[in-house]
Design a protein around this nucleic acid. Structure first.
Lengths: 191, 191
DNA sequence: GGCTGTCTGCCTACCAGTAGGTAGATAAAC
DNA sequence: GTTTATCTACCTACTGGTAGGCAGACAGCC
């Protein structure tokens, strides 16, 4: 049994890529079917509804991102270095302005989403915000981030800046715009 | 002739509201027709295609926003006060987290958009960025904004923060999230 | 004044294509 | 012999868009 459910993974991969490029309303089961190479109806076997698929998408995205955050933690000494690590992640995630973070893509179509997906977006943001708060706190203590007053409030603000930067870079499909857009953050990272 | 084209305005109003709530792919001609009270086909008389409608939407949005910026300019003394004015505008524009700036809503669906609309988004952002650059420059000179080093780079970053803040506030439909999300900016406005 | 042609704004009726989703069959795997 | 993964064939609802008609306003002209 090489792959109990390669198809399921292939569907998630295809759906994630499509959602991040076209948004929640911008891709269909027919698109996925063509991409993965099975019939449209067969997708319903793996994900009964588009809402189920979206939730599964967010859950996987959440897990992956959590793992990446842990890797940054273990690979970086200072709070500033950790912030740099997350910035790199968001920049790479935007694929040179060709796509968005999944929760940015979903947020924009909020009112087309199922309540479960909205809940997942909240959980994801909560996880990232908590991580950012710790990194900022550490950066304040070790002097690698300047001007930190309220790690809690600023964590939300940093996330907001990163998501906004992806959005701006997306319009021009230009990674340089991303770098410029996060100036308010980078100018404060010392080490 | 009370109204040569009230219908056209009504269509633009309905479409703007829908686009900002559901995104570009989240509203249809049928929705607009029902909302405005004419038949779906009649919309094509005013806007031959959805691309035409979207361009008209962005143009009107651009003009309105430009007027608002001018009003802020004439009503505020310091650079910091002008920034506060723009922040208020973005917060009010998000209608307590129930909708987004039109160009945020459109950006997320970029690959479903016509090239003309993408161009319009660029023009809008250029206009706001230029305005922000002047406000930051002024704030540096009059001391109402602290830590300004490169008004040009930081202008893009401020816009990115404002758009990101709308996005975050949207998920929870909570205006308090917006306030928290712009901390990186407000902590630097002195007067 | 009345006549005529044009323009505006809307209508009904329709198109091909696509959306997400369902029913039921089939064949292989455990 | 049930479970798993897929298929064909279909459904209803809706997508943006088109064709053609029609009532009223508005001009210029006699």
């Amino acid at each position: 049994m090489i792959a109990r459910s390669d198809t399921k993974t292939a569907l998630l991969n295809s759906a994630e890529s499509a959602a991040r490029r076209f948004g929640f309303d911008g891709f269909s089961y027919a698109d996925l079917a063509k991409d993965v190479g099975i019939r449209k109806a067969s997708i319903h076997h793996h994900f009964p509804s588009k809402a189920d698929l979206s939730v599964a998408l967010m859950e996987r995205y959440h897990r992956n991102f959590q793992r990446i955050c842990a890797e940054i933690d273990s690979g970086c000494e200072t709070g500033g270095a950790k912030l740099q690590g997350l910035i790199r992640q968001y920049k790479e995630g935007s694929d040179n302005g060709r796509q968005l973070c999944l929760c940015v893509a979903f947020s924009a179509s909020r009112d087309s989403l199922s309540p479960d997906v909205i809940k997942q977006i909240g959980l994801f943001r909560g996880m990232v915000t908590e991580w950012l708060e710790k990194a900022l706190e550490q950066g304040r203590k070790d002097g690698s981030v300047s001007g930190v007053h309220s790690p809690e409030r600023e964590a939300v603000s940093v996330l907001s800046l990163l998501e906004g930067a992806q959005l701006l870079a997306r319009t021009d499909e230009d990674p340089a715009v991303f770098d410029q857009a996060i100036t308010l953050l980078t100018m404060r990272i010392c080490g």
